[in-house]
Nucleic acid binder design. Structure first.
Lengths: 339, 339
DNA sequence: ACGCTATGATAAAAGGTTTTAGCTCGCAAG
DNA sequence: CTTGCGAGCTAAAACCTTTTATCATAGCGT
């Protein structure tokens, strides 16, 4: 009956102070290295705090400081293939700063997005990272003028905001140059839907490098379309392409499969390069697919750093930051002559 | 200079009270429907609160109530394919209850896992959901006796905890029964690494249904292994299998590709069924792959409900909850005779 | 001896909400 | 007229931490 109450209550700074025989303020100063304090006292307080397992109450702290040390990520990604690497990057950066990440999957439902946004604002997140897998979908929900910093990752926000996106043009260049370096000519670009901004940007970069009239085949972002494109390209007896630069690894996979069906050797007869470096796909094609990695984790890290800086009141130059892509050579392009 | 200060300060309940000409307590009561209050007053307060855009400060609230209305998900998933659908389920359930979800990707790094755990505890999450893509990896980090409820999703926790996992045995049965219903005999099971618990469980269920000596081929969870298995099975001139039950969609994809190479028709000559229902794979095989869906979102939802109940102090029966899998028939098994 | 400074410690306020106990007023019962 | 009671409202405490202003003491120079 007379069991000591609160035995497993959370330890507060008051407990620390009492145990150390000092006042609450002194305890606080000791733990945060603020104010003037005797070195010995500080150590004692800290030791005791650790001993009794004291953890400062985040609620009290944010109540006072006005900062919650949390940020939210709003995403419409369903499969996680894009958002998880980014989130990993974000939280890697924020973890060091003691900031945690709320992940809000909206499932492409604007109503859900709105509810999540409300919830985040109620939780007083210090900042927001907005991510969308498809630029044409989901126009930011009433995201107009919130009282907190917003950073866009993998989606281009309005010019006054900070955005981080893959450098599609540079990625396309990387791909084309690699094909050229491997000695391939007559490159054709097989890519996804024409109304995707990224498809255009990549196609443009590709044409700038090859020729203004170089062939671009728009279609769907599927294997199916990759196979179909090969049918189209290799059916007649006109001149055949020597290399295919694909807009996604899925398309590339379709391409490679169709080439294989036709007994066309990769990379000897035709070279293929993909885009996304989606490992589960790229590593399992025959031969393994060379591809362009969009450095999602880096994008996440950069977005994390930006939102952190903004939360601290620092100023970050607004605009679109294009993060360099990385070439991941495997076996589908042969060997580069140089470099 | 004399501009009204705090114009864009957050509205507090005090602002509401002042504007409505009532005390803070009354305002609080009106908003939360607690205490005795005149209906008219209540409506007035609520109207004004909405007008001035009042949002209760979550920090103050949790400081008082001892609950933060947040839970954390700790995961080692790198690609997000498993964790994102689950997280979507979790947050769907929790959103209604005003609880938000911290996602912590540990990247299989125990140090990172530990840091995340610390951060979550500092944030005073009300509960924790622990998720691991591979049961053999990452033994829960010092997750032994935390002061908060812990639920396991997609990974089996200790018996005194609550866990939600796919019902692998039932899923395997579903697959085998489907093959049988489609008229296929001589089924072989091609699956992943022998030291995975799930591989065993599925194999066992398969044998129970087919025959105690039915053939099981353990290998890797890759397309490569799927192709290799086909080589092994169809190389000699012994009796050939009529159907292949694969342990993952990736394996199934390898199997289908290899069969295609050998000019063996699917499903006419050999039927194939996968496991995971990983759409990007299953929909793109030729023919599209029938598969078993593990209902990850449902697992997430159930885990969310459980952790919510536990946070509220309700008691949830501990133990492993096996969530039924779902058959997703496509074209790789032909048509079922009945049902 | 006196004033001044530096050091070390502390009391108290602040932050926004919920909750408990209490207050006032009007009305009905005695 | 007094007492009791309920409806409606409110003051104040509590939650935990940080920060500001204050206080006490010792040391030092004159």
């Amino acid at each position: 009956m007379n069991r000591s109450p609160d035995l497993n209550r959370r330890r507060t700074i008051r407990d620390v102070a009492t145990a150390a025989g000092v006042s609450i303020s002194t305890a606080s100063n000791a733990l945060n290295d603020t104010g003037r304090i005797n070195a010995e006292t500080r150590e004692r307080v800290r030791r005791i705090a650790k001993e009794i397992g004291f953890r400062p109450n985040a609620a009290a702290r944010s109540l006072l400081g006005g900062r919650s040390h949390t940020v939210g990520i709003i995403t419409n990604d369903t499969y996680g293939r894009l958002v998880l690497p980014m989130t990993a990057g974000v939280s890697e950066v924020l973890l060091e700063a003691g900031v945690s990440v709320f992940l809000c999957p909206t499932n492409n439902d604007p109503r859900l997005a709105h509810l999540h946004l409300e919830a985040l604002l109620d939780k007083q997140v210090d900042g927001l990272i907005f991510t969308a897998t498809r630029l044409d979908l989901e126009p930011p929900p009433a995201l107009a003028d919130l009282p907190i910093p917003i950073v866009h990752a993998f989606s281009e926000g309005p010019p006054e905001r900070v955005s981080f996106v893959p450098d599609d043009a540079q990625g396309a260049e990387l791909a084309v140059r690699h094909l050229l370096a491997c000695g391939h000519r007559r490159i054709v670009h097989v890519t996804g839907e024409e109304n995707y901004v990224v498809a255009h940007r990549r196609a443009q970069a590709y044409r700038a490098l090859v020729s203004p009239e170089a062939r671009v085949m728009f279609g769907e972002w599927t294997e199916e379309w990759g196979r179909e494109a090969v049918e189209i390209l290799f059916a007649g007896d006109g001149e055949k392409p020597g290399a295919l630069f694909c807009g996604s690894d899925e398309i590339a996979r379709g391409v490679i499969d169709a080439l294989r069906d036709r007994r066309i050797r990769v990379p000897d007869d035709v070279a293929v390069i993909g885009f996304d470096n989606w490992e589960v796909v790229a590593r399992q094609t025959r031969p393994p697919l060379s591809s362009i990695d969009m450095e999602l984790k880096t994008i996440g890290r950069r977005a994390g750093e930006a939102v952190l800086a903004l939360c601290r009141g620092e100023t970050v130059p607004p605009g679109i930051n294009r993060i360099a892509c990385r070439l991941v050579p495997r076996d589908s392009c042969g060997r580069a002559d140089h470099d």
